[in-house]
Amino acid sequence: MNFPGLPLLLQSIVSGILMGGVYSLVAIGLTLIFGVMQIINFAHGSLMMLGMFTTYWLYVLMGVDPYLSLLFSIPICFVLGLLIERFLITPVLDAPAHNQLLLTLGLSLFIENLALFLWSPNFRTLDIPYLQTAVTVGTVMISFPKLVAFFFALLLTAFLYYFLKNTDLGKAIRAASMEREGALTVGINLRWVYCLAFGIGTACVGAAGTLSAPFFYVNPSVGGIFVITAYVVVVFGGMGNFIGALVGGLIIGVAESVGAAFFPGQLKKFIIYFIFILILLFKPEGIFGRRSE
């Protein structure tokens, strides 16, 4: 174990919070789908990878700025989510949980292998000079693309929160997640709400993909790196809990980053899995409780 000095600790905390914003966005997509449909989407990571590749190819082939490609990756992933729900998830909605789990896992393998076939397993990066810049505040160095990712992740989260809290459609989604039968009795079309929730969840993770592409590598299996952490965040914040996923993402981001400062490289995820196990053992409903939103 290393004992980092104060500057390193500060640096870790700041980096962790910035990274946490992206984790939050990924986890919000996951927790929204779980909250509404009670389905754990194992294809979430592959869908994030598709968001990253959308941004990558738009830049490489057409010179589209990576942040501008949010305007493409969000609707593309949203529609993709709608289609996946409609044609793959709807048929297994009433099936036992393990069937649903195997289906989304199968979908994930399919998407990743298709990506391997089409785009090879090579690690690719966006080679744009302005993405290499950083801002320095005191001793803390803030990478520009991470700062932008954090800003957009929070912006999208705030936008989604407003939608869920204040629009009729958003309220219908929340209603369906807290009380299915009640939702049916007021005339909410549950099949449409499920479709929509899956679409929004996928759009979230697609946006997170786009926002990560400027500071991470892009390859077919990259989604798993973010999404495994996002599962920890979802459990930590309470499955189906929006605010839990938001705050949890930031906390887990900091835990990971500070963990990396204390422990050698191979053990950098040690702290978050340790937290994961503690939560499962002692507070399985999550820090913020299940589905309070």
Partner: peptide, 20 residues
């Protein structure tokens, strides 16, 4: 068993009644 929406306000519950 009523099946109201527990973590929404009374007002929001009523509003959702007029969803269609």
């Amino acid at each position: 068993g009523r099946k109201i929406f527990p973590t929404m306000s009374v007002l929001e519950n009523l509003e959702l009644g007029s969803y269609l």
